[in-house]
Amino acid sequence: MAEHCKISAAIVAESEERSYAFKIDGYWKAKRLVKNGESVTSPPFCVGGHDWILRYYPKIFDLVTVFLVLDSADAKGVKAKVRFCLLDKDGVRVPSYTFQENVFRGKGSSGGGVGYSIKQEDLERSPHLIDDCFTIRCDVTVMKEFKGKENGQFVVVPSSDLHRHFGDFLKSGDGTDVTFQVDGKTFSAHRSVLAARSPVFKAQLFGAMKESSDDLIMVDDMEADVFTSLLHFIYTDSLPQMTREGDDVVAASHLLVAADRYDVQRLKLICEEKLCSHLDTDTVATSLVLAEQHSCHGLKEACLQFLASPANLEAMKASDGYVHLKSSCPSVLKELIARLLPAELKAAKDIVMAI
């Protein structure tokens, strides 16, 4: 991959924190030649006595992404604060950045995904892509552990239990001020919590057309179990446990629709990721319809790549979801057919897409 793209690094600041500016040279060639999900690696650099590298992914679907990766063979449990930002032509930070504290478990660890992403089209339209190059700055601070005694720390801070408190708050029903009726069942909740987590609930409960506290809000076209899971996520930022894997996949499909309806984006992405990881010939047609109808670009791409296999495509045609796919999303079938045609048949692809 090195012939497609080159990464050079220079120290731009050094104290307890080290800052590196990574110049990524050869954007357009890398975009064209490097496969989706493949990376280019920077030269190693040292911070806090540990070696690190930057992995640059020219395309993860429609994103340009960089990750910080621990590269020391004997390092374990390295705790670091990391910040990424895009630099303009004068070397000044562009406002958006990532700043978080992560534990890098060992060699090859990315600290649970410490990275920076920008949409390809946003980068290409920006003034920061200059002469086929752009620059990412990475600030790394390795945290030193202080232990006063041989037996360990003086103070151990427990993990956050905010989610448990909010979950108990929902279960208790204390202070609820809005009631929903869903599939014949009623649910009580707190307007402020719902509004904080969903812009749709915020508009419904606090906007110009807000419902009064005395109104029973009807939710149509949704099962009670799905609304229960939606409320659980809104209050706890987690999904309820499912008893069987099959139930988990079905629930993810219904929850994805609910998450899109109420614009709960993190829940939508969690459901989308779960469906991507459970694709098979029986579910791919239904998942492809969901992806098209609810603008799930990652799930759609996963389905189309799955169906690029002739055996998977043939088996999908025999599934119950195929008829639904044909009737509800014929444009997706055209896109699939166009993808399957050899590259040299561009005219045929254009004809298929124009039908």
Results as ranks from 00 to 15, higher is better:
Asn151Arg: 05
Val78Asp: 13
Val64Ser: 03
Ala302Val: 08
Ala318Ser: 15
Ala2Phe: 04
His128Leu: 01
Ser331Asp: 15
Asp74Asn: 14
Tyr27Cys: 06
Gln293Tyr: 02
Asp90Val: 01
Ile60Gly: 00
Pro342Ala: 14
Arg261Val: 06
His324Ser: 08
Ile11Gln: 05
Lys81Tyr: 09
Ser159Val: 05
Thr228Gly: 01
Leu123Gly: 04
Ile7Lys: 08
Thr135Tyr: 04
Val12Gly: 03
Val284Ser: 03
Ser213Gln: 14
Ser198Met: 06
Leu68Ile: 09
Leu333Arg: 08
Asp215Glu: 13
Ser319Lys: 07
Gln120Val: 07
Val156Lys: 14
Tyr97Lys: 13
Leu123Met: 09
Gly321His: 05
Ser96Lys: 09
Ser110Cys: 14
Pro240Thr: 04
Lys149Gln: 12
Asp132Trp: 08
Ala291Pro: 05
Thr179Asp: 01
Val178Ala: 04
Leu340Glu: 14
Ser72Phe: 09
Lys149Glu: 07
Pro58Phe: 07
Leu256Lys: 10
Asp247Pro: 01
Lys202Thr: 02
Glu273Gln: 14
His278Ile: 01
Ala259Gly: 09
Gly184Ser: 11
Ser15Cys: 08
Ile118His: 02
Asp74Ser: 14
Leu205His: 07
Ile337Asn: 03
Asn36Cys: 13
Glu14Ser: 15
Gln181Val: 12
Pro158Val: 14
Ile136Gly: 05
Val178Trp: 05
Ile118Gln: 10
Ile11Arg: 10
Lys31Val: 05
Lys89Arg: 14
Ser39Leu: 12
Phe104Leu: 02
Ser309Thr: 06
Cys303Arg: 08
Tyr262Leu: 03
Gly113Val: 04
Phe99Ile: 01
Tyr235Phe: 09
Lys326Ala: 10
Ser309Phe: 03
Lys29Gln: 13
Gln265Pro: 00
Thr176Asp: 13
Leu325Gly: 07
Thr176Phe: 11
Lys81Ile: 07
Ala311Val: 15
Asp221Asn: 13
Met209Asp: 07
Thr243Cys: 02
Thr186Val: 04
Met1Asn: 09
Ala285His: 08
His4Trp: 09
Lys326Pro: 01
Lys79Tyr: 00
Asp25Gly: 00
Pro342His: 10
Gln241Cys: 01
Ser287Leu: 01
Val289Ser: 05
Leu275Arg: 07
Leu333Ile: 15
Leu256Gly: 09
Phe84Ser: 10
